[in-house]
Design a protein around this nucleic acid. Structure first.
Lengths: 216, 216
DNA sequence: AAACTTGACTTTGCATACAAAATGAACTTC
DNA sequence: GAAGTTCATTTTGTATGCAAAGTCAAGTTT
C-alpha cells in the first residue's frame, strides 16, 4: 500500500479522521446510518479497516450502535444536549480554576498570544480563522491545568460538542462578543484567583451554551 | 449493554470483559504486553475479535499502544498516577457538588441505604463486601448528579484507577475509617450546600489518594 | 382484514490468508 | 572491537470469503 496510503497513518486511522471531519462539518448528520460496505467502497479499502475505525469511534461515543442494525452518528435530545453542555461547562470551569492556580509565565504569554489572534480574527470577521483561534485558546487553557487527564477530558468534550457549537458563530458580532468574553476570562485566570476563574469560565460558557440550545 | 446481553454477547465483547477482569484482579500487571496471537489461542478464536477487543480497550485508555511493538496494559509513573488521582478527585468533588444541589428524596434514601451497607461491611471486616458497597455508594453519588455525561466520566475514572485503589483497603480499620469518612460526606451532601459538599468530597478523596500514592 | 409464516436479501461477525513493516541477530567491514 | 548492514523472524495491517443472524416483504391462513 505504498501508493494508496500516502501518509504514515494506517487506513483505519485515516478513515477515523475522515469520518470525524465529516461529522464535524455536518456532512454526516446526527442519526445518519453508516454502512460498512459503502464506506469500504468510498475509501477504496476492505471492510476490515472500516470496522476498526467504526469501533474506535463508537468507543469514543461519536457513533452509537443503535437498537436496530448498523451504527449511527450519535444524536442527542435537547435534554442530552443540555446535559452534555453542562458537563463541558463544569469541566471548563475546572480547567480555568486549575489554570489560575498553576499558570507559568510561558503559559501566560502563550494565552495572551492566542487571545490576540482571536481578537484579530474576530476583527476581520473571518469565521474559520476565528474558530481555529478559539479552539487554540481553549486548548491552551486546558494545557495550563498541567494535568494531562483533565486536559484530555476537556479536549474530548470539546470534540464531542463541536458539531453543535459550530453553528454558533454566525456574524462578526458573535465573534467579537466571544473574543471580549475571553478577555475577561483571561484576566481572571491571570489574577490567580481560582474560584473567580472558575466562575468566569462558567459565565463564558453559559453564554455560549444558551445560544447553542436556542439553535438546536 | 454487556451484562444485559449475557450469554449472547460477541466474542469481542467477551474477550474485552475477560481482559478487564484480568487487569482488575492483577493477573495482567501494568506494563504487561498483550500478544494478539496468544490471546486468540487462549480464547479459542481468531485474531479478528481479539483485535476488536484490544481496540476498544485502547480507546478506553485501559491499554496503550506503546512506542515499541504491541499494546500494553497502561502503566503510570508516580507523576501520572498523581495527575490521574487529582483528576478523579476533582470529578468526584464536582459530582458531590451537583448531587448536593439536586438530591431527590429517593436518591437520598438510596444513598443512606448504601452507606448503611458500607458501615455493616466495614464492621465485619469483609474486604470484598466493603469494596462492593463502597463502589455502589460512589456510583449512587455520581447518579445523583442527574447528568449522564458527568456520571459516565466519574465511572470511567473509577474504573481506570481501580487497580491502584484496590490495595488500599488492607485492614478493618481502613474500612471503618473509609465508612466514617463517607458519613461526613453524605451529611454534607444532604445539607444541600454544594460548595461544602465539593470540599467534603475533596477531603474524602485526598485521604484516599495519599494512601494510594504511598503504596505505589 | 389482520396476523402469522416463510423465504430472499442484507448485514454482521469471525476465520483464514497474505503482504508490509519492524525487530533482532548474524555477519561484514573499517 | 565497534559500527553498520543485511537477512530471518515476528508482528501488525488489510483483504477476502463464508456462515450465522437479522430484516423486510410477500404470501398464506384464520
Amino acid at each position: 500500500m505504498d501508493t494508496a496510503n500516502s501518509g504514515r497513518e494506517s487506513s483505519a486511522a485515516r478513515i477515523e479522521q475522515a469520518l470525524l471531519e465529516d461529522i464535524a462539518i455536518g456532512e454526516l448528520e446526527p442519526g445518519a446510518r453508516l454502512d460498512e460496505t459503502r464506506l469500504a467502497e468510498r475509501f477504496g479499502v476492505s471492510r476490515t479497516p472500516v470496522r476498526e475505525a467504526l469501533n474506535r469511534l463508537t468507543a469514543q461515543g461519536v457513533l452509537v450502535t443503535g437498537e436496530k442494525r448498523g451504527v449511527r452518528v450519535a444524536q442527542y435530545s435537547r435534554e442530552e444536549l443540555a446535559q452534555m453542555f453542562e458537563a463541558m461547562h463544569e469541566i471548563e470551569a475546572l480547567c480555568a480554576g486549575l489554570a489560575a492556580q498553576r499558570l507559568t509565565l510561558l503559559a501566560r504569554s502563550e494565552l495572551e498570544k492566542a487571545q490576540a489572534e482571536c481578537v484579530a480574527a474576530a476583527a476581520t470577521g473571518d469565521r474559520l480563522r476565528y474558530l481555529k483561534a478559539n479552539e487554540a485558546l481553549h486548548f491552551l487553557i486546558y494545557r495550563a491545568t498541567r494535568n494531562i487527564y483533565i486536559e484530555a477530558l476537556a479536549v474530548d468534550f470539546r470534540r464531542r460538542t463541536g458539531p453543535f457549537r459550530a453553528k454558533k458563530f454566525a456574524t462578526r458580532e458573535d465573534l467579537v462578543a466571544s473574543a471580549t468574553s475571553h478577555e475577561e476570562l483571561l484576566q481572571t485566570i491571570f489574577s490567580a484567583d481560582s474560584e473567580r476563574a472558575s466562575d468566569g469560565m462558567r459565565r463564558h460558557m453559559t453564554a455560549s451554551f444558551l445560544r447553542v440550545l436556542a439553535l438546536n
